Computed example of a mutant assay.
Amino acid sequence: MTKDKLSGLQDLALKVREHIIEMTAGGGCFIGASLSCVELMVYLYAEYLNIDSSNLQHPERDYLFLSKGHDVPALYGTLAELGFIEKARLKQHLLASDSIYWHPNRAIPGVEFHSGSLGHLPAVAAGVAMDCKLKGLQNRVVVITGDGELNEGSVWESLLVANAYGLNNLTILVDRNQFQANIRTEELIPLEPLVDKFTAFGCAVKRINGHDFDALEEAFLGIPFTSDRVNVIIADTVRGKGLPSIEARADRWFCAFSATEISQLLEELHGNKEARIESESLIVR
């Protein structure tokens, strides 16, 4: 990846993180998991997927399904920065006058499917991928799941079907931030060895650093990994990435902050060490 492209993606990721922090106002949002998947969302929309504000209904567009719907602030922030929706709409988060809410809503341009209950969209994505195959189209279908979401049996059932039909146009991208709600995944229902599990279900698997744009590009440019299997990318990430005061903290799952606290967190995001020290004592409501 060129230096200019990398710098552009990093700048875009920073702006998306700013939006996420600002969406903790009012009723709050799922800030930790949203911050962990920023690079994933930014790379997909800015570089990989054939999706933009002009082709949302085109039959040959690519598809992104956000199965871990509580990460929608990262999606909304990305869509706003890339011109799918006006940035001003993000300030209407949780207002009855708009559809910018805690989970994806198809009323928002760029959102392909509603999600909230976990484990549903791998099946939806597999259905879309099969439809594209039957029509002889070259659409790429990506679904982002959470790691805790992998406890849902429907995820694995979907993989069995998808691999039975050789859906190599389908990619499962796992945001592996090590947390499920307010507990570590390995303390609740251990997931590892995750690569072996996906492989056993017939998938072609790669594991990468989910905050490294070069690693993301190398993985996605290699898709399809094989001619007849579902692609799986396990992206190791950090919950709360970008805000050291809340990174990898179970109690920084869902947060609602005051205007003063948000200003403090934005300073921390931009490298203010004093702001970080103050942020560590913020009260989570």
Rank of each mutant, 00 (worst) to 15 (best):
L159H: 02
L160S: 02
V161R: 03
V161F: 15
V161S: 11
A162C: 06
N163K: 00
N163T: 00
Y165P: 00
G166P: 05
L167Q: 05
N168V: 00
N168L: 04
N168R: 09
N169F: 04
L170K: 00
T171S: 14
I172T: 01
V174A: 07
D175I: 01
D175H: 02
D175W: 01
R176V: 02
Q178Y: 06
F179Y: 15
F179M: 13
F179T: 06
F179E: 08
A181I: 12
A181T: 07
N182A: 10
I183R: 10
R184S: 04
R184I: 00
T185P: 03
E186P: 00
E186Y: 06
L188V: 06
L188M: 11
L188S: 13
I189N: 08
I189P: 00
I189L: 13
P190G: 10
P190D: 07
P190L: 04
L191I: 08
E192L: 09
E192D: 15
E192N: 13
E192V: 04
P193L: 06
L194A: 09
L194S: 06
V195S: 08
K197F: 06
F198K: 01
F198A: 03
F198L: 03
T199V: 11
T199E: 14
F201N: 04
F201Q: 07
G202H: 09
G202I: 00
G202T: 04
C203D: 01
V205S: 08
K206R: 15
K206Y: 09
K206T: 15
K206N: 15
K206I: 14
K206G: 10
R207L: 09
R207K: 15
R207H: 06
I208F: 12
I208P: 10
G210L: 14
H211Y: 02
H211L: 09
H211C: 03
H211E: 05
D212M: 10
D212A: 10
D214P: 01
D214Q: 14
D214S: 14
A215N: 13
L216K: 12
E217Y: 08
E218H: 14
E218R: 15
A219C: 12
L221M: 12
G222A: 15
G222M: 09
P224A: 15
T226D: 11
T226R: 14
S227C: 03
D228L: 05
D228Q: 12
D228E: 14
D228G: 07
R229M: 10
V230S: 11
V230P: 11
V230M: 10
V230I: 13
V230R: 08
V230H: 09
N231F: 13
N231Q: 13
V232F: 02
V232L: 06
I233K: 09
I233M: 09
I234C: 10
I234M: 12
A235C: 15
A235H: 12
D236H: 06
T237D: 07
R239M: 14
R239C: 10
R239K: 15
R239W: 02
K241H: 14
K241D: 08
P244I: 06
P244V: 06
S245W: 05
S245Q: 05
S245T: 04
I246K: 02
I246T: 03
E247P: 04
E247A: 12
A248N: 15
A248F: 06
R249Y: 08
R249H: 11
D251C: 03
R252F: 12
R252I: 01
W253E: 09
F254M: 14
